[in-house]
Design a protein around this nucleic acid. Sequence first.
RNA 1: GCGGGCGUGGCGAAACGGUAGACGCAGCGGACUCAAAAUCCGCCGUAGCAAUACGUGUCGGUUCGAGUCCGACCGCCCGCACCA
Length: 879
Amino acid sequence: MTTERYNPKDVEPRWRQAWDQQELYRTRNDDPRPKYYVLEMFPYPSGRVHMGHVRNYTMGDVVARYKRARGFNVLHPMGWDAFGLPAENAARDNKVNPRDWTYANIASMKGQLKSMGLSLDWSREIATCDASYYRHQQAMFLDFWKAGLVERKSAKVNWDPVDMTVLANEQVIDGKGWRSGAEVEQRDLTQWFFKITRFSQELLDGLDGLERWPDKVKLMQRNWIGRSEGLMLRWALTAQSAPDGFTELEIYTTRPDTLFGASFMAVAPDHPLARAAAASNPALADFCEMCRRMGTSAAEIETAEKLGFDTGVRAVHPLDPEWTLPVYVANFILMDYGTGAIFGCPSGDQRDLDFARKYALPVIPVVMPADADAATFAIADTAFTDDGVMINSRFLDGMKSDVAFEAVTQRLEMAMSGGRPVAQRKVNFRLRDWLISRQRYWGCPIPVIHCDDCGAVPVPRHQLPVELPSDVSFDRPGNPLDHHPAWKHCDCPQCGKPARRETDTMDTFVDSSWYFARFTDPANESAPTTLSAVDGPSGWLPVHQYIGGVEHAILHLLYSRFFARAMKATGHLNTVEEPFEGLFTQGMVVHETYRDVSGAFVLPSDVRIDVSGPNRNAVHVETGAAIEIGPIEKMSKSKKNVVDPDEIIASYGADTARWFVLSDSPPDRDVIWTEDGVQGASRFVQRLWRLVNEIAVLAGPSLEKPAVFDEAALGLRRVTHKSLQSVETDLERLAFNRCVAHVYTLANQISKSIDAMTTDQPDADMRFALREAGQILVQMVAPMMPHLGEECWRALGCEGMVASAAWPSTDAALLVDDTITLPVQVNGKKRADVTVPADANNATIEASVRGLETVIRALEGRDIRKIIIVPRRIVNVVG
RNA sequence: GCGGGCGUGGCGAAACGGUAGACGCAGCGGACUCAAAAUCCGCCGUAGCAAUACGUGUCGGUUCGAGUCCGACCGCCCGCACCA
């Protein structure tokens, strides 16, 4: 029998058209079946789909197709995270309009995604740069503002004085703007913030309920939120040393137990006390200015020396009025954590110790390990930061750290000064409010008008959206909105006087913080969400399975959790606070790197690998020049180790690409793209096609289930149903690599069963078993390789399309064998096998084990002390 | 520095505390072919003719039994990073 080669170029477009014609993936909100919402993180429309997208969207598509087969009403939408800087860069560099550039990219990427055969509901497509989307974002901004969740306040930011824009930390290299090369300044600017810190505790507590999130991501968010319990503590300043208007200094500490080890106070360069002291002290003012200029890059902060300057101000120890300590300005104190001021305990904090050694301040050990000797315990170069036993601490001596914490805290809470307690317990968070202002053009305009009389005024609802002007030029540095007079100047909505629009746009992370909610009813023109569709009994949220890269572990995933709470508070969600019930973070696609003799990177498509035995040698396809094979790294344009999905789909078909990215590597780990691997995947596509056609001929049309099956047919049926069950389990766990293995196992078994047949016209029981195996094999494959699935489904003569077929059910009777073979261990080492009926009791098993020749030999004459039988697993003879 | 994860054949990997290496890739041998490709069959942790012994980074522990649990160490990866 000959079967034509499977040709994905013909087959794949045909089935995509058939799915489209039947609107198979169009989701209705009023469908009565149980809902399942699967979502992959939407892409930035950079212009080209890359292999990371292929892997991400294939995984989501497998889940969507599987859940559809299991009878769910599945929502699987796609959209575009379409605002952002690359569009502005392209506009400036290529003289194109950011909008035109973005929509052209969307069009080409949409075509690429469609060629992958994803079961997406394109009727719900949204682009965040579309006014039909961001008008609702502007409305929600105003709602958040009204609800007290928005604040305009001064913040310290990286300012590039040449490009005249704020820079993100990672865009500051060696203290200079990455593009202009200008020295970056720390500037206080008035900016818009979302008050995410309002929900610090809730965002922390909510993590406990996220059972289907990776622990790693939850941990990263916990650390980011950074809760700490401590004490706000007021220190009096001596009257003769304090600047005018200052009588005390309030600090935050998590270690009040170490208070008797204090040897100095330190405040941030921008602390009000530092500014006041600097006013009459030019040298101090210079020092503070120098601190402000300090680099903001991670490397600089890490290596920066601890520097301080004695203000001359003296503070009084709260537990000893006779004890005064110097107040320094220090470069390592952060103004925006705690109160921007600390007490330094050198023996218990490494930074304080470094500082004390530099400025010859006392180092008093106050905590020592429980087994140390108080008489000899001393601090050298390393502070003792653990809990332990108190020493040199008066009434605390001998207490453990936590007991001392309570003792000091209670005493200080009782102590009064100026009619108020000296100390108060305080929970502090590391989390900062979310700065959303960007001095960029290609973003969602902040819907605010500034009036000299009325201040910041919301744009009236009926004037929304505040649309971006399209006639902008990027000839001048800075924000084009800022020098677009017709757009910028307007009248105050309150008093009618001439006023100015806010020219900052929103951080693009705002756009992606609620798109998953918009997908539930993207056509609603009057409101961001439709309450009957967005969540609650008849709604979609939370997203049941969210899939994306781990790089968003904090940013996007934390912002979205904030947004859900803020949307609930402003009536845009009914009940949901956690937007993503299940989260899966997939690994990257990595590839070997290639360099020519000059060290320049070379594309994989320009390299040919010659294999001789264990050696692999690479040469340039055209020139034949030697190529050096480098380390395997994340696919990136700069290293040129990229493989274009379009080329793979053109030469092998989408199914091969999909099958490959699901195979071998666990989905949360990196997958190595290799030409061999792709060819292996492609070979399996062809093999499956041949196998299915063979089955179709041998099995014939479907027939009634025979009453009895011979051993061969029964064996095939057992493997079929066991494979099906394994695939179900592993699909639920998103263990796609294991699903692939189960598919191979079943395909191998079918081939073996066919090889073992003695006739081309098998009996009814084998025909039934073959057809059953073939159909189940195709249904197992179809979520992963949907085009091939359809073609095979038709080759088997099945009704309709496999994409709309119900998932087959397993026959429980076939999942257990009649007889089982148990390994027999003697003292933990495997010595034999024993085959017994599946329902054999322990006595029967013991009896057969005792008689085994190999067991007796392995015992070497010892008596059997006991026999451990783990049901259906193993027998261990202890002798 | 703090926090977390991971170390299994030539490679990607499997393995409710229960037969280590399923499944795939590469490789080797064979069949078919004038030949090649494709396909099919077989082998494929190490040593050994074999029986067998040894093998999951290292060292210890718990257990009838450890890749899996506990402790220490070595190595790699990731996240945060002057957070008081």
